[in-house]
Write a protein that binds this DNA or RNA. Sequence first.
DNA 1: GATGAATGAGCGTTCATTCAT
DNA 2: GATGAATGAACGCTCATTCAT
Lengths: 194, 194, 194, 194
Amino acid sequence: MPPSQTIKSEAIRLFALQGYDGTALSEIAKAVGIKTPSLYAHIDSKETLFMELFDDIAREHTEHLRVAIEAAGHSSLEERLFAVIRESCGDYTLSEVKSTFLKRSLFFPPAYMRKEIQGRFLEAEQSLRGLLSSLFEEGVADGTLRSIDVEQLIASFLCLMDGTFIQTHYYGAEEFGKRLPDIWKLYWAGIAAQ
Amino acid sequence: MPPSQTIKSEAIRLFALQGYDGTALSEIAKAVGIKTPSLYAHIDSKETLFMELFDDIAREHTEHLRVAIEAAGHSSLEERLFAVIRESCGDYTLSEVKSTFLKRSLFFPPAYMRKEIQGRFLEAEQSLRGLLSSLFEEGVADGTLRSIDVEQLIASFLCLMDGTFIQTHYYGAEEFGKRLPDIWKLYWAGIAAQ
Amino acid sequence: MPPSQTIKSEAIRLFALQGYDGTALSEIAKAVGIKTPSLYAHIDSKETLFMELFDDIAREHTEHLRVAIEAAGHSSLEERLFAVIRESCGDYTLSEVKSTFLKRSLFFPPAYMRKEIQGRFLEAEQSLRGLLSSLFEEGVADGTLRSIDVEQLIASFLCLMDGTFIQTHYYGAEEFGKRLPDIWKLYWAGIAAQ
Amino acid sequence: MPPSQTIKSEAIRLFALQGYDGTALSEIAKAVGIKTPSLYAHIDSKETLFMELFDDIAREHTEHLRVAIEAAGHSSLEERLFAVIRESCGDYTLSEVKSTFLKRSLFFPPAYMRKEIQGRFLEAEQSLRGLLSSLFEEGVADGTLRSIDVEQLIASFLCLMDGTFIQTHYYGAEEFGKRLPDIWKLYWAGIAAQ
DNA sequence: GATGAATGAGCGTTCATTCAT
DNA sequence: GATGAATGAACGCTCATTCAT
């Protein structure tokens, strides 16, 4: 692995685990196996390193969600929505550590970049809302879902997404992976037509 | 307000906003209006200050939940469960800043006190599970709820709790307060008997 | 014991054990059982406390030496000289802790009072040299001692004094107390007439 | 001189002069001509700096003593013993400042490393006792010394060593250098066979 | 006489960063 | 591309001391 990639992956791991303020560049350097000043041959600053990682991962995450949602027609609505949930808790295609990095950055960003980060994410969320919107409208239209306001469906779905993420993080992916299908079943029962 | 109390409340606010590693004692001192060394007339160390705040707030939170759950019998099951959710997202009796402090500490604790914190919280969670357990059993028994395994009910409820907390934090209490009832309605529809 | 006396004795003990720079007023206060600022009802400053202790003990020590040397005629010269040695290593009348305080202050005084302290001690040493001088002259005159230059006798005696002090401090008074008579015998054999 | 060496020599000088507690890293840095944090490119901590210096000097000192004692057979016993004394007061091969550092560390070590230091030195003392032991046994056997218990000879010799060290420190190497031969003569008279 | 609260000075140490090599 | 050496800024914390109570 080229050193720049090692730096990125170790930085993601440490930022996810310890946060931005809790991670010193010296820790990243040590994890990579070089001395701290050598980092500067590959990065501009701690801040820009962090922001680049955030951008990369946010983009990757959005892309994964899009793919999950736009899955070929042979997947049912329930399957596609469940795939989005699984994706969002890092259990699916995005690695768990990247998922943690992403959510930590969103929920509790480093003070000086709060606005920047939340601004960038609002766009992503808007696009996600758009995709979900089509999905839910379709489901209501074809009678798969109860006749509920789409905005409400989206709100409750996003709430579930955040809940499953936190619990994945808290109980660990493996343990929570067992509970997730049951949780989903109850959620689905609340929105599906009888 | 006595100075020790000012220190506590300012510390809670800053720890909630910026995290443990992102908050310098000098910031707390400045917010209080004293010099940094003067803090040490009131605290033992940054670590113990943090842990004491955590203990206080965790205890207060647990107590609020207990009260919400054990509310007088004239509240319906749905009302009591909803009260727990509202309580848990800081919208009810625990101040929003305390709620943020609590969840941030739990989800992303400072590295060196992770075990301590999570250990202490596991107890609280166990007691919450116990209380919810009685509630759900009762609901299943009297036909208010569908006949679902209580463990699954608890898991999905705790997941909802975390989701609503994150969203409160993310969208702000006021904005999210409007969406919450709708979210609750969909959740309730998933577990209530038809 | 009145508090001022407790302060003095605890300060002597801690200064002897840990040195001036290594002893915080807070330690003295804790040993006395009061809070640090309360010390200032009894002392002017850390510096003056130290200097007063030094003066007290130096004076006491000088007095003890004088008494040992001027002991009634029924003591032999050897007995009187040996008494001076025993006195100087804290084994006799001055407590061991005071002896340690004194020697530590002399050998390695706090930087800012080096001149002050060494100046004061030179006087004391001059007076000790005077007393020893009479003793040795008498011994040479009456044939108890070999016919050696008195200056040389004094120099070797003071050297022995410092050696026995250090060893008392190093091996402990009890252990070294056993060796001292043998050491003295060899020293005496070197200066006594055959 | 490479910077690490400058740091060591300045640290030795200041620790010898002012003690461990009385010497701030900022003083060492200023003496070296760098800023305080720059020290940390060369040292791990103040404590380990001190301990490394102590180890270096103690080892060097022990080696010098060994050489003095094992001097070629053309030196007489008296010459060899006297060489040990001269060596031990820093007048011979170990620089005066190192000698002061060493003795100060031994007699009045910083509180929290007392055991460590004294432990390390006990070994050195044991080896010195061994070497002296052979020397004295030889001297008694060939009639150079009076027939005295070797343990007593060692005890008195070590006592003389400490005395001469202290006086070198106290009167200065130059001044005391003049008195030392006379002091030695009297000591030797006490142990030598007539 | 004792204390809680405060403070300026200073401590040992870590940080992100620079720069010559 | 990597490093040793350095640095200004800041950190958590202790110190001797003051002062109102």
